[in-house]
Design a protein around this nucleic acid. Structure first.
Lengths: 192, 192
DNA sequence: CTCTGCTGGCTAACGATGTTAGCCACCGAA
DNA sequence: TTCGGTGGCTAACATCGTTAGCCAGCAGAG
């Protein structure tokens, strides 16, 4: 309305934000906080402090907190996609197993990022186009069926979340649950 | 220290709270808000307003917000347990299928309660003893294996959460994903 | 060289949130 | 009749995301 903000004067980049150097720095700092201290530590004030500025100044670079989070989410999807692509290339015999193991490894290595990516509704329209599809492709290829790919994804996601949330008993053999689950999916893929 | 609070003078009931009439009313109001308006609407001020009192007065009945939520969670577990028990009694031939359908139906009928129950780490020690185990028993019985039961639970939970969070494309055939997933689990149960 | 306007900071504030301290009216039992 | 517990209240605190409005610096135009 009044002053044309820094942000909406740029081309319609997915997130409504063009990739400036300063923005890159902000995302980098956000990622550090997220991975080191978890999602609840990623506040605008905390993020600003890490950059030596005030929270309100962040709004010169991003329209809202969600825009910052979406950069992290996109970054996470890119990481997952690359891992999947490498995994299926490495183990062509048993792609389902390879993708599952990779999925689990990612979730364990970057649990806070995993949560950010998968715990809440995803604003697709603010993500780079095709990124989600790229991350999903290897599993779809491995299972050979959309329905089975979704069931497999759901199982992997469920196992990860239940484990991250400590919902299994302390003595539970989570490896065994993964093994039997993956085998069930593999059989369905081969037999179907 | 000074005044012995209303709460900790009572016997060590699981949640640290004895079941008074007033407390029952509070939980009832909380449930109404949760189911009608979702988890983010369940605030202490909002809950108090529904009862015609101030937020701070709630702390005469519950030590914190989590204690109120835990009452709702316990209530949810009781509902799930009863549904499961009825389901396996009704369909003895295919207990896995029966439990899965029941699980999905519960999540769709009471999505906000489902979220409250399953989205975050669970404070077991503040829940009535044995309640969680009771809710888990039918699936364990149906699959015949802890590992498979966990894989099945994870798949169901994953499917529910991905669906509730709108993570599947709008045109996705979620029924098909459930069907193929349940079949895979059933085969593993029979063949194992 | 001067002016102008954008960039990217700042302070102050708003309306939420959960929670605590401290006060007091009521009411039942001793 | 007194006394103490029950269950209200107001006021306040820290923290959250976010907005309004101000201003220093600097680059480019005249």
């Amino acid at each position: 309305m009044t002053t044309p903000s820094t942000i909406d004067r740029h081309r319609p980049v997915p997130n409504g934000v063009a990739p400036t150097e300063r923005r890159r720095q902000i995302v980098e700092a956000a990622l550090t906080i997220l991975e080191r201290e978890g999602g609840s530590a990623l506040t605008m004030r905390r993020l600003a402090a890490a950059l030596g500025i005030k929270a309100s100044s962040l709004y010169k670079h991003f329209p809202d907190k969600e825009a910052v989070e979406l950069e992290l989410i996109a970054l996470g999807f890119r990481d997952v996609a690359e891992r999947f692509e490498r995994a299926v290339r490495r183990d062509r015999r048993r792609p389902v197993r390879a993708v599952a193991a990779t999925y689990r490894a990612f979730a364990h290595e970057r649990p806070h990022l995993y949560r950010l990516m998968n715990e809440r509704p995803l604003q697709r329209e603010r993500l780079p186009e095709g990124l989600e599809a790229r991350a999903a492709a290897p599993l779809l290829e491995a299972t050979g069926s959309r329905a089975l790919a979704r069931a497999a994804w759901a199982m992997a996601h469920g196992l990860v979340m239940l484990e991250l949330n400590g919902r299994f008993p302390p003595d539970a053999d989570v490896d065994a649950a993964w093994a039997v689950g993956v085998t069930a999916i593999e059989r369905a893929a081969d037999g179907g």
